[in-house]
Design a protein around this nucleic acid. Sequence first.
DNA 1: TAACCGATTAGCT
DNA 2: GCTAATCGGTTAA
Length: 202
Amino acid sequence: MSTRLDIDWRNWKPIPGNVFDSSPQEVAPFIVGCMLLFDGIGGIIVETEAYDQTDPASHSYRGCTPGNRSMFGPPAHAYVYRSYGVHWCLNFVCGPEGYGSAVLIRAIEPIVGLEKMQQRRGLQDPRLLCSGPGRLTQALGISGQHDGLPLDQHPFVLLQPPVPQSIATGPRIGINKAVEKPWRYGLAGSKFLSRPFPRRPG
DNA sequence: TAACCGATTAGCT
DNA sequence: GCTAATCGGTTAA
């Protein structure tokens, strides 16, 4: 059983590398709705968060260290870090080189390679495969050895949809500082979010 | 000791 | 169907 069989992939195009020269607050909403494949397996990005060096919640806030050096490297590269000792989390480095900014990939809708993802995750439910930053790296087989890899070549593939997506925003998840920054972006109503977006007052 | 989390459990609609 | 609370676990400050 698969999803999104209605999509015509012929109209999807590679994401230009210079997209990642922009700020993480611009890149994060842009890549929501884009297709992410790693070694031929993946799906549609449905949730992201922006981080930059001025942000107390960012790994780059206190400058470059051995653990976060990829964040200060060239844009359009991966920053993969270990979270809570056990999980891996995938970020896309953006902004001018040395700026220390990145976009955290928080959730994808699994499309390609369902069986492999289910095997790696040890469960069947598509909604639990990639709905969380640690879950999606396990499903795609991404770990610390992939830190620093360029996003515009194998094993990465990034495609943008022919039509821009409608993006919801909200506060980021799992942080205690700069909680008020609405730097979480996603497809509101998607069943593959790590958590739903708060309903806007109105 | 705090951190960009996941799995499980308990309780709600 | 959903949300909140708890706890294990490694790293770096």
